[in-house]
């Protein structure tokens, strides 16, 4: 048997298995995480402050999960946006004006409604309808649909967590004109560049995927963050080894 071939074909599976084991081990051993185990990220502190201020002032929070859907690589950033939506909605559940969620894809909109309904346990269909909305089916129609929410709903803070394109500049520009805080993160590189220039607080790269750990979504979030750190260093070592090996081979 071609064990090397089998191993090569199974490399991805082995990598995923290793990630599984790391997450489980860190979850079991890190039930009581040490304080200050995460590096300081002011963006989440400002987000917490913004949630508190919105509850006190009676203004709205706006959480948008983008138009990436739930399938593929884009879909996971949308799932992460749903997780942030759940945390923020739960934190602001005592507010007179609950947070409003917008999505640019149907499955994300349905899941947003489901998340909101699970927290508020509301039986009013109209209330569920307005709490999480599908505002557009294409990126720019989605951006056009989010603008009225930012302008008309007295939004004091906007959280953009999901897959966006360069059209996110319209959202940050509207939020700036309304003098509301923007906390944004995307897995799309051009969107990250736009957000870096225009948003108040930006999550670059995998910082978006660390939001669960910083918002105390659960011990497994912190365990997965620690797993990411371990795998990252392993990848660094592999890359360095490969580069050195190629350079040595070229000599």
């Amino acid at each position: 048997m071609n064990w090397l071939g089998i191993l090569w074909d199974s490399l991805g599976l082995l990598f995923l298995g290793f990630a599984f084991v790391l997450v489980i081990v860190f979850t079991l051993t890190g039930r009581k995480p040490a304080p200050r185990s995460l590096r300081d990220m002011p963006v989440f502190s400002r987000l917490r402050d913004a949630v508190g201020l919105a509850v006190e002032a009676g203004t709205r929070l706006h959480v948008s999960t983008g138009w990436g859907g739930v399938l593929g690589l884009r879909g996971l950033s949308g799932v992460l946006g749903l997780s942030m939506l759940e945390r923020i909605t739960r934190a602001a559940s005592a507010s007179d004006r609950p947070p409003v969620a917008t999505a640019g894809e149907s499955a994300l909109a349905i899941l947003s409604q489901d998340t909101w309904r699970g927290i508020h346990r509301s039986t009013n269909p109209e209330e569920n309808l307005l709490a999480a909305q599908l505002v557009g089916l294409t990126p720019f129609s989605y951006a056009a649909g989010v603008l009225p929410v930012i302008y008309d709903e007295q939004v004091s803070a906007t959280v953009l967590a999901g897959h966006f394109g360069s059209e996110v500049a319209l959202l940050t520009d509207a939020a700036e004109r309304q003098k509301s805080l923007v906390v944004a993160g995307s897995d799309n590189l051009p969107a990250q560049a736009v957000l870096y220039a225009s948003a108040g607080e930006t999550l670059i790269g995998e910082e978006l995927f660390a939001s669960g750990a910083y918002l105390n979504a659960g011990p497994m979030h912190q365990a997965s963050l620690r797993s990411q750190d371990v795998i990252r260093w392993l990848l660094i070592l592999v890359i360095l080894f490969g580069a050195i090996a190629r350079w040595v081979g070229s000599l």
Binding site: F15, L16, A19, F20, V23, I24, V70, L73, L76, S77, V79, L80, L82, S83, L111, D114, T115, R117, G118, I119, D187, G205, E206, L208, F209, A210, G212, G218, M220, H221, S224, L225, S227, Q228, I231, R232, L235
Partner: peptide
């Protein structure tokens, strides 16, 4: 880094920690 985050998120979903479905 994004890929690692995606992998971690996928692992959390497969383990039932992240559940976008309530």
């Amino acid at each position: 880094g994004v890929a690692l985050g995606v992998v971690a998120t996928g692992v959390r979903i497969l383990l039932g920690a992240d559940r976008p479905y309530s």
